[in-house]
Amino acid sequence: MFSYCTDPASLEGIAWLSCYLTTGKHFAFYGSFGTVAILLLITAPLALAFGFAGAIAARSSFLPVRWLGKGYTAMVRGVPDIIFFLFVPIALDQAFEWTRHQVLCPDWDQPVRQGSDFVVCNAAKLPLSSAPQWLHEGYGFALAVLAFSVVFGAFAANVLFGVMRAVPRGQLETAEAYGMTPRQSFWRVLVPQMWVYALPGLSNLWMILVKATPLLFLLGVEDIVYWARELGGSKTSAYAYPHPDWRLYYFLGLLVFYLMLTKVSEVVLGHLTRRLTHGQATAGGEAQRRAAA
């Protein structure tokens, strides 16, 4: 990057380090922090939407839908999330390809599963084998995001299902007394009031989501863990910047990054909780009122 970096072998000390830390691969490493941020920013709202749908389904008066919702909320209860992270992307990938296979190649006569192979016709492959590299990576990342959203949606559904029952019964009875239909009282009374009860659970969920992001590495995405291992591994003199095994320092960097991320989240969420409890008929709101008085 700098003009004096043309011959790394002749450099020493700070100059060497400044050149080392600005190589193309290091910029890919810095960029992968963006990958984590994108994952968080897409997954959080998507998981919330999944969770909301799951919670509504679990409250449905129509039995099959209720079973579906209950099953979705129960799925994360006894099974480690990492099993889902390994399972969901492959399962989704195969489900997509199989569906496309059925639609695009109806006259294909061989079975899809042949021994230990999963064979679909060429037109059904996702992404197509002729697709550019970025599309392959993007598809992998999208599957990862979907896996995260499904799993954390189930967590969120648990939180929201409990929270919908925490809204005082009197509020809903009042709504009914005013002649609101169940749909109206749900959207106009229950949903606006439930967020303050949901906040502790959801902030906890955000913390878990943040701490689950390094699992992206297991899904084959080139994230910060991938680059930390890649760059930290010992480099022989065949490389421009030879160095011994520095993975420990790279992982220390990641540790500090995550500690800062969780600390900042904690402060922001604490602030948000105080804002939302203001004026609410809860113990927290009451405590705020007393402190001010």
Binding site: P214, V225, R229, D245, L248, Y258
Partner: peptide
């Protein structure tokens, strides 16, 4: 408590392994 609750277990495993290898 802050150190171990604030960072991912996954990173802790990696870090511990790299440290123990040294």
């Amino acid at each position: 408590i802050f150190l171990f609750r604030g960072s991912p277990l996954f990173i802790q495993f990696f870090l511990a392994y790299e440290a123990l290898v040294l």
